[in-house]
Amino acid sequence: MTGLRLFAHGCLYQYRALFNWATPLGYASSKLLVPVFQVVFFVQLGVFATGGGDPTYFAIGNAMQVTALNGIFGVVMTVGNERQFGTLPLLLASPASRLATFLGRSAFHVVDGIISVVIAFAVAQLLFGLRLAHADLPLLAASVVAVALSTCGIGLLLGSCSLVSRDILLVANLVYFLFLVVAGVNFPVTRLPGALQVVSRGLPMSRGIAAARLAVAGAPASRALPLLGQELLVGAAYAAAGYLLFRVLEGWARRGGLQEAF
């Protein structure tokens, strides 16, 4: 229990200490303005492009995708700022569990990402009449949690890369927009060219969004649960790769004295 408490405590401090948007204005804009504008923009575009099609398809996809703001940018900043603040050597020379510290970087972003999705769904309901009357809400909630977790997985991998690269936010931007294209946010994955479908299968989010659409439509859970299982597996694979990279870089830094260069 003490271990769990220490973990939760550490997660909170890391979030407050390392996350760049932890000012009221920055937080409010990331929580409200970005989700609202993203949902409004893509729903309007989608409706216009399809000649007055169903806005809820675009609303669900984009509402789910805003979790990547936390999962990718939030986690990348949280890991990468350790380098900027010069605290990485202190962390590496401490007896703290590397795995707990590493995973702790994403814990509050999972929660924060879920809040972003809830706000985006509320916007979709208010502005575009998204109806959840027939939705399987627990399944929808599970889909949101799965996507929040899996995007944090890829965020942890990019975060580890940010320990050795100053330009990782460029890659994070690329991945964020790649999700818009290949993750079934605005159009079905099956409409993508074959190569992009392969990319989509290798990234988190598409299965979670598909499960969320099924949940909103009230489809049986048996159709959505396998998708959620796969979504979590993909996210876990990215998180594991991120952790391995983190440990490799730690060993590399010990041999080469690169903690300050990080």
């Binding site: 405590h9 401490s94 007896p95």
Partner: peptide
Amino acid sequence: LRYFGDLYR
């Protein structure tokens, strides 16, 4: 100090 206290368990 609280955070580093956590790191040092």
